[in-house]
Write a protein that binds this DNA or RNA. Structure first.
Lengths: 187, 187
DNA sequence: GCCGCCATGTCAGCGGCTGACATCGACCGT
DNA sequence: ACGGTCGATGTCAGCCGCTGACATGGCGGC
């Protein structure tokens, strides 16, 4: 075995979730997280840009899945529908196995405004990327932005319901349901 | 005259905007802002919860105007339309006189992710309050959330265009235009 | 078998932010 | 007019998030 235990990043994430659920986000210091992972504070900041980020790493895959799902839809599909297909694709990452983890993580986020800020900007960036993809296929600027943002609003509702759902429906189902409500309310 | 110069909070805001436009948000310390305002760092934090907040104080009035505008609409008005009337009411606060200031402020925010986070959560809170007001008048939970969030998405687009607009149209006009696009894209 | 790489450690330091306590003009009641 | 309270500010000590600079030492390539 090497000089270092492998999986430093994963150990940091796990240590962080443990300590935070025990004591709450703001009663845990980065030094404590690092210590539980058998590392130092400095190393924590080599793996995560800041303290909040330890709870959001891995979301990149999720964002990529969404954008890939959008780009994969034929160009003649209407903007909002293309966005929805992208959002549905998130279900390949957020499958049933990840639901309990997502729930625990969301509870932490919901209890801490600074984490909500981070979540909001992450989702806004995904929406912004989707809007750019729509523009690339010729959609008008305003329509692109609104299709992406409205779709993301539906996704947020869908995610909330999926997390609370006891396995009855998957995320893609909730996305479809939320978009149906969106269409009702905007009509 | 009293022991202290009046308008400490306003002086802090002005000093902050000056220094930030001169040097950029992250090259200005709170102590420097306070010093230019003739105060101490500790006093800064008595007026603003954190460094970012100095750029967002006063938005409370704006949020109140929106919610008041929503609550004032008759209960038989459809949810999204009620939201739009609230958002239009923001124009009473963000009038033509405030446009240059809004523009300068928005440039700073757009250049600093940490400030974007703060802006996003502020708007999300307004949307959340609007959703609660809709629920209070009997609108279904999901419809309320989506009407508020979709309306807020339109507002963000409208605000962007209003800030870039050279006085041709007011904010309420841009809100109406953005909602029209929203209806097109969601239809 | 040597060497360079790279993940980690160590250390010093800045800036955001907070709690505790002191100060002293303004205002109020008598 | 006087005493007391109040409230905005100052002062100070200190924690914690975060960063730059430099050191260390197994591992893999040559």
């Amino acid at each position: 075995m090497g000089r270092w235990q492998p999986g430093a990043q994963g150990r940091l994430q796990q240590a962080a979730m443990e300590l935070i659920t025990e004591r709450g986000y703001d009663r845990v210091t980065v030094a404590e997280i690092a210590a539980r992972a058998g590392l130092t504070e400095r190393t924590f900041f080599r793996h995560f840009a800041d303290k909040r980020e330890v709870l959001f790493a891995g979301q990149d895959r999720f964002a990529e899945a969404i954008v890939a799902g959008l780009v994969a839809t034929p160009p003649d599909v209407a903007p909002l529908e293309a966005v929805v297909r992208g959002l549905e694709a998130s279900g390949t990452w957020l499958d049933d196995e990840r639901r309990p983890g997502s729930r625990a993580r969301q509870d932490v986020i919901d209890a801490h405004p600074e984490l909500q800020e981070r979540e909001l900007i992450k989702l806004a960036r995904v929406a912004s990327t989707m809007a750019a993809a729509l523009r690339d296929r010729g959609v008008d600027e305003g329509e692109a932005v609104l299709a992406a943002d409205a779709g993301m609003a539906a996704f947020r509702l869908a995610f909330t319901r999926w997390v609370a759902d006891d396995g009855e429906h998957d995320l893609a189902w909730h996305v479809r349901a939320a978009v149906a409500v969106l269409r009702t309310v905007v009509a």
